[in-house]
Design a protein around this nucleic acid. Structure first.
Length: 415
DNA sequence: AAGTCGGGGGC
DNA sequence: GCCCCAGACTT
């Protein structure tokens, strides 16, 4: 046998060792997760969409509620979109929910309500990319397809000491080829889950638990002592800060005891979710970025933004500040309590024109809803709600917390 | 290839 | 604070 052939044989042995030991470990260590109790392709599919960029512990309660409310593909396909969004409330990446329902309608109409088991069909479902397609095909149907996510790339980077940047596209393709080679005959479902389970429980990003690892013996990174410096991944850009003024408008007259909420536009950030109205804060005088706007200026700006949006209310004072972090933006919301007022006798357009004229040409126009086209169906719908009504609207977490806190405080003041 | 899309847990 | 998570989609 040549040296080259010996080397190849050794690589094969290391791969076989990995696959067999990992599989055996999985059968002893796998967690009891709701979507693992039956091999139901619909359950697998829902769980995989929820698990995109989201931890198992976070997903479990959402999954259980979702399956209870939408037990079948058809029930999901036929549901009102707001109900799907409400089920997703707080889970983030809300386009996942909309895409999921779109895909449920695809499955209902194209495949008779049965989740398809062939590659092209699964890939064609909205919201299903390379990872999720591989996960559905392998976990639900035991097809020998790779399912390469962050866990898998981390595990493979370490075991095979691969220094490719996992943030780059081609790296995933390379990992998929490798992961496909590793699948033992007829064991795609368990093996792919085992790979991810190892990444979640043992081969963690920081301080991996190498001693109990079933494949430590041949882990190249461990042998080289560099397991904590893998995988290589370029840093994400820091999110840009955005200062915003938010209005907590309490109703008077027929709206007494209620708070004003607004719906976001059809597309983009937090699409179709409900929120307290808010607008970009003008830069503070003196120009220092992040400097706090003087209260009087904020109150005045908010009053005009509200009026421009057709809301007649008087900002009264600063209530609280709240932060909300997205992947690419950080909102700092300065929340002001505002009191609903009677609409003025003058029509809004005339009011607005007079307001601009009085302010002079230097006054910047305040958009009705930035990013929107101005059409009502693009968002901007408003409602006056009490605490019980919150059941009917889906809110991003920051507004969920603000509203709950407000209603708590209002209740305490009554008693 | 880079930007857009949430939110939380772990350290 | 920072990192990353069972990623997909758009440009």
């Amino acid at each position: 046998m040549t040296t080259h052939e010996q080397q190849e044989q050794q690589e094969q042995d290391v791969k076989l060792f990995f696959s067999s030991h990992l599989l055996e470990w999985y059968h002893g260590q796998k967690r009891d997760l709701p979507w693992r109790r039956h091999r139901n392709p619909y359950y697998i599919w829902i769980s995989e969409i929820m698990l995109q960029q989201t931890r198992v512990d976070t997903v479990i309660p959402y999954f259980n509620r979702f399956i209870e409310r939408f037990p079948t593909v058809e029930s999901l396909a036929d549901a009102p979109e707001e109900e799907v969004l409400k089920c997703w409330e707080g889970l983030g990446y809300y386009s996942r929910a909309r895409n999921l329902q779109h895909a449920a309608r695809q499955v209902k109409e194209l495949y008779g309500g049965q989740v398809p088991d062939d590659r092209d069909a699964v890939f064609g479902l909205k919201g299903v990319g390379p990872y999720t397609a591989g996960a559905i095909l392998s976990i639900a149907f035991n097809r020998p397809e790779p399912a390469v996510d962050g866990n898998v790339m981390r595990v493979l980077s370490r075991y095979f000491l691969l220094e490719d940047d996992i943030a780059k596209g081609p790296t995933r393709v390379k990992m998929e080829r490798l992961a496909a080679e590793l699948i033992p005959e007829g064991e795609a479902s368990y093996f792919n889950q085992a790979l991810m389970e190892l990444g979640a429980l043992v081969c963690t990003p920081k301080s991996p638990r190498c001693l109990p690892c079933p494949v430590m013996e041949h882990c190249a990174a461990r042998l080289a002592g560099c397991e904590t410096s893998l995988p290589v991944k370029t840093k994400a850009k820091p999110p840009r800060p955005e200062e915003r003024l938010a209005a907590l408008v309490t109703g008077s007259g027929e709206h007494a005891g209620r708070v004003l909420i607004r719906q976001r536009p059809q597309s983009g950030l937090l699409a179709r979710m409900w929120e307290l109205p808010h607008w970009p804060a003008p830069p503070a005088e003196g120009g220092a970025a992040g400097a706090l706007l003087p209260e009087a200026a904020a109150l005045d700006r908010l009053r005009r933004s509200l009026r421009q949006a057709g809301i007649f209310a008087r900002p009264e004072g600063h209530w609280t500040a709240a932060e909300h972090t997205f992947s690419h933006i950080v909102w700092t919301l300065q929340v002001y309590t505002c009191r609903e007022e009677d609409a003025p006798a003058l029509p809004l357009a005339a009011e607005a024109r007079a307001s601009y004229a009085a302010a002079g040409a230097a006054e910047p126009p305040v958009e009705l809803f930035e990013g929107g086209s101005g059409h009502p169906e693009d968002g901007g719908a408003v409602r006056w709600i009490n605490r019980e009504d919150m059941e009917s609207y889906a809110f991003p977490n920051v507004f969920l917390k603000l509203l709950n806190r407000y209603f708590d405080e209002a209740e305490q003041q009554e008693s």
